[in-house]
Design a protein around this nucleic acid. Structure first.
Lengths: 239, 239
DNA sequence: CGTTATCTTGACGTACATCAAATGTCGTGG
DNA sequence: CCACGACATTTGATGTACGTCAAGATAACG
């Protein structure tokens, strides 16, 4: 199912964008938001649909403004590694060469702002702060990927789940409270492919955490963190 | 053993640097190399010594000009994940906050150019091409870390070793031939911590590859790739 | 030449994967 | 409203790739 283009610039474009504060767009001053809006196309991607594919020519950058997407790579035989989940404010499409190196699909309906590559290069020349912001973004992504390598290479299933739940609780809210009630829009299969485990192990480990009194699971996709400090200790790998 | 400072700028500074072509320094035009040299301090780091430590204030950037370093993160109980090996041309120290997020140690004696953070920020303003280069570097690092996540999350021991050997064979030489004779300066323990395995599994898997006629091991640290195509197929995860 | 670190090899254990089935959960249509 | 099938999640039984423990073998070193 292909993603659908809605409009090439709505009437109230970037100024009222809820994701702006958290995104690279905040490098462009309010007065110049028109320039930004002129370069973007808003797209709505239905759940399950892809909007960026590994290997395809990297013609666009994307900025998620609503919903959740999964970023992943596939091996030829179908094994999948999810590299992360993109939520509002997340910038996508940085590619070392001229082809995307990761794929992106909507987990739940997603809205993205799409920018043509040349337009971004032009904007970067006009607003040098934007390049600074992009470098900052890339650094953050890199640090996250390195943390991911530690998780995948050296943590146990229990530690991986604890890390995932806490990460999801704090994602987005930059320096804020860390939610205790989580909604997980992705399936157990997505979580498994993110943590380098199987669906069964994810399920079993979650019920183990529940039976240990660390979390509650009112529904499969709703998690309450009952003892965040204990989860944090597990996630950090403390004995 | 602490790293030792040699000189604050040698007589023939950056112009004769063998690592320049592969490093971010090539964003500075030849005529301005004096400005670059004035901002750098050359340090020699003996094998085994650390020169960057996770959690420390990120006061400097580093550019490896000789030798091999390991980049890693530790868990509190000592588990280690090596994120990669830095060879000449490798730029280090991009940190999202003001503290390093990874540690670096010399595997074999290393020479690095050290830049104070403020100096780099000043240079970036003077040479905008440098910021472009830094973004490019960060993108490459990110792609490498994402590839690392696939390796750690979804590949078998055999596939990990094949990936590692081919990666080492092509590292550095950007678009060039891919060596068939490899020298591995790092220990089996380093390889294990890079691939998310144990020393024993690394050793066993290497002898399995040798017995399968895919590689030769004249010495533990010398590898000859006998059938690179077959290794590539294994590394890619083809069945 | 001992001494010590590194690497290899073997025997055995285990955390997680695989296979299989039961149990929800939800949308669809009778 | 309820029967039905498709699908996601959970749970159980069993398998296995890799880890752990323990020797040797080999090489580096004073």
């Amino acid at each position: 199912m292909p993603a659908q283009t809605l409009s090439t610039a709505t009437l109230q474009p970037c100024a009222s964008c809820g994701a702006r504060a958290a995104s690279v767009c905040n490098a462009v001053p309010d007065a110049d938001l028109g320039r930004l809006a002129a370069a973007t196309t808003v797209r709505t991607v239905p759940a399950g649909a892809a909007f960026m594919e590994e290997g395809e020519p990297a013609a666009h950058f994307f900025n998620v403004t609503a919903g959740t997407a999964r970023l992943f790579k596939l091996l030829p035989d179908g094994r999948r590694q999810i590299l992360g989940f993109a939520r509002p404010g997340h910038f996508l499409g940085l590619a070392p060469a001229d082809a995307y190196v990761v794929s992106a699909e909507a987990v739940e309906p997603v809205r993205v702002c799409r920018f043509r590559r040349e337009d971004v290069h032009r904007l970067v020349r006009e607003f040098p702060a934007l390049e600074r912001r992009l470098l900052e973004t890339a650094s953050n992504e890199l640090a996250a990927a390195q943390e991911g390598m530690v998780l995948l290479g050296r943590k146990t299933a229990r530690e991986r789940l604890a890390s995932f739940l806490l990460g999801w609780a704090t994602a987005g809210r930059s320096c804020a409270p860390a939610a205790r009630e989580l909604h997980l829009p992705m399936s157990r299969g997505d979580i498994a492919d993110y943590l380098g485990l199987t669906i069964e192990t994810v399920s079993r480990t979650l019920t183990a955490l529940r039976k240990a009194g660390l979390i509650a699971l009112p529904e499969p996709s709703e998690v309450r963190l009952l003892r965040p400090e204990a989860l944090a200790a597990i996630a950090a790998g403390e004995v």
